[in-house]
Amino acid sequence: MKLILTADVPNLGAPGDIVEVKDGYGRNYLLPRSLAITATRGAEKQVASIKRSQQARQIRDLGHAKEVAGQLGDLSVTVKAKSAGDSGRLFGSVTTADIVDAVRAAGGPALDRRAVDVPQIKTTGSHAVTVRLHPEVTAELQVAVVAQ
C-alpha cells in the first residue's frame, strides 16, 4: 500500500514522505490515526505543502539544535497547575501544551509540542522532561510544577 505520511512516524519516515507499507499496517494503524493519507495524484501534490509546513516548525540543522538545547538548559520553567490536593497530588495532569506555553513564557524558544516527551506528571515539584530537537540532539529540561 502506497501512503503519504502526514506526521512523523518512528522508524518509517517524516511528514511528506511517500512510503510503501503492508496493507494491514496502513489500514489498521496509519490511516485511522491520521498519520498518513493514501497516495493519489491529488494527494501527491499536497506533499509540497506538507513539507513546507514541517520545515517551518523544524530545527534548521544540528548546530541550531545544539544552540536551542543550550537555551533550554539555562531556562527556569514553572508550570502552574489548576488545582492540587493537600498532599501535592494534582487533579489532572501536566500536558505537553502546558510545558510548551511555560517555556515560551519563560523566554525560551518556540517548541513543537510533539517534540516534548512528558512522563505522566501528577504531583507538584520538580520533574525532568525530554525535548527531541533533532535526531541527534535531545535536551533535558527541569520543570517545576506548582499549585495555584
Rank of each mutant, 00 (worst) to 15 (best):
A36R: 06
R60C: 00
R114V: 03
A65Q: 00
I99S: 04
V131P: 00
I50L: 14
S34Q: 15
T124N: 06
A128F: 01
G125S: 03
L31A: 07
K80N: 14
G125I: 09
V68T: 08
K2R: 15
T130D: 03
V129H: 07
G70R: 10
L30S: 07
Q58E: 14
L35N: 04
A147Q: 10
G107T: 09
L133H: 04
A48C: 02
T96S: 15
D86I: 11
S53D: 15
I121K: 02
V118S: 09
L12K: 02
A65K: 01
R60G: 00
K22M: 01
L5G: 06
T78V: 15
R104D: 12
A69N: 01
V94K: 00
L133K: 01
A36S: 13
L31I: 11
I50M: 09
K66W: 01
V116R: 00
P10K: 15
K66Q: 14
L35S: 00
D61P: 03
A128G: 04
L133W: 07
A102K: 01
G107P: 02
D86E: 13
G85Y: 10
T124Q: 01
D23L: 07
E20Q: 06
A14I: 10
Q54M: 10
A14L: 15
R33Y: 00
G92C: 06
R60N: 00
L62H: 09
Q55H: 11
A144L: 08
A106S: 12
Q55K: 15
A105F: 03
S93V: 07
I121C: 00
N28V: 11
Q148S: 08
L30Q: 05
D61N: 15
G63A: 13
S126N: 08
V118R: 03
K22Q: 12
G107Y: 08
K2V: 07
R132E: 04
L30F: 13
D101G: 06
V129K: 05
L75A: 11
D61H: 10
G92Q: 07
A69G: 02
G24I: 09
A48T: 14
E44S: 12
Q71E: 12
N28G: 13
Q142L: 11
D112N: 13
T40S: 15
S49K: 12
H64S: 12
A69L: 06
D61K: 05
E140I: 03
Q120K: 10
K66T: 00
T95L: 04
V21T: 05
S76I: 09
A144H: 02
R52D: 13
G24Y: 11
T138D: 09
V131N: 02
A102S: 09
G125C: 06
V94A: 10
D23F: 04
T96Q: 13
I121E: 01
T78Q: 12
G73P: 02
P119H: 04
V47C: 09
G73D: 14
D74T: 10
E44W: 03
A36H: 06
G26T: 13
D8L: 14
D23E: 14
G63S: 12
T123C: 01
T138W: 00
L90Y: 07
Q55V: 11
P119T: 03
R57F: 06
P10F: 05
R33M: 12
I18F: 01
A84D: 03
E67W: 03
G73Q: 11
M1H: 12
T38I: 14
L30H: 06
